[in-house]
Design a protein around this nucleic acid. Structure first.
Lengths: 123, 123
DNA sequence: CAGAATCCCACCCGATACTG
DNA sequence: CAGTATCGGGTGGGATTCTG
């Protein structure tokens, strides 16, 4: 089964796109050191809507990055935790986050300079 | 000047979002070892529209990740190259790309299993 | 509590046409 | 050649409502 370079490239891009998603990063970040319930995640990931939290978690579950554990009973309880695979992603993302942190000031400064040098057209 | 955690977090997310953009990654990747002209980039980054290439390059320039050099004359010639800052980004992205490459099969396999276990509702 | 379903709008982005 | 301008379809994502 031949697999073209194109396919591989597109798959990797897809994965990077997943990682680049802001909600994904925030959610994975929150699961760093402990498992959390749906409601806890909803509270701790500031600004996320119920819908987006659900979608993000589903995708992460589908990709094998988090586990979803339903505890029977009333009220219902669903817990989310990182898998081993999810942990390796966390490491990589953390590294990238450190790049972002480390160069944040530089980038902001560049933007400031660029924006003053290229004023918005009047319109 | 107090800078809230929220602000810093949002800035980092913004930067990660930038990195996650598929065109950004492809363009930066192509500039890895040599400077390229607009038209060359347009040819080599498969599928990108003129508009998106322009926008991507502008943003990268604004953030100080690439330089834009205009050579006078006819026909016009504009060359793009990575800055030192851009190179450090390239390194980080490459690392993440290696993660994606290394775990690609696992993720695809997880998806396959998930999709067969959770068949799409009939509709 | 943990979602699923629906509505709806803002914006992203591609296609196309025009310009210095 | 290297862009800008404009239009229009598709989509991401918020707000709201309903259910097991």
């Amino acid at each position: 089964m031949a697999e073209s370079e194109q396919d591989v490239c597109r798959q990797i891009l897809q994965i990077l796109g997943l990682i680049g998603d802001k909600w994904t990063i925030l959610v994975v970040g929150q699961l760093r050191d402990r498992t959390l319930r749906f409601g806890e995640l909803h509270r701790v990931v500031t600004g996320i809507s119920q819908r987006m939290l659900t979608r993000t978690l589903r995708q992460l579950e589908r990709d094998g990055l988090v586990t979803r554990t339903v505890h029977a009973g009333v009220p219902p309880r669903v817990e989310y935790a990182l898998t081993d695979l999810g942990l390796t992603l966390l490491d990589s993302v953390t590294a990238l986050g450190q790049w972002a942190t480390g160069h944040r000031q530089q980038i902001i400064e560049h933007r400031r300079r660029y924006d003053t040098a290229h004023p918005a057209p009047i319109r």
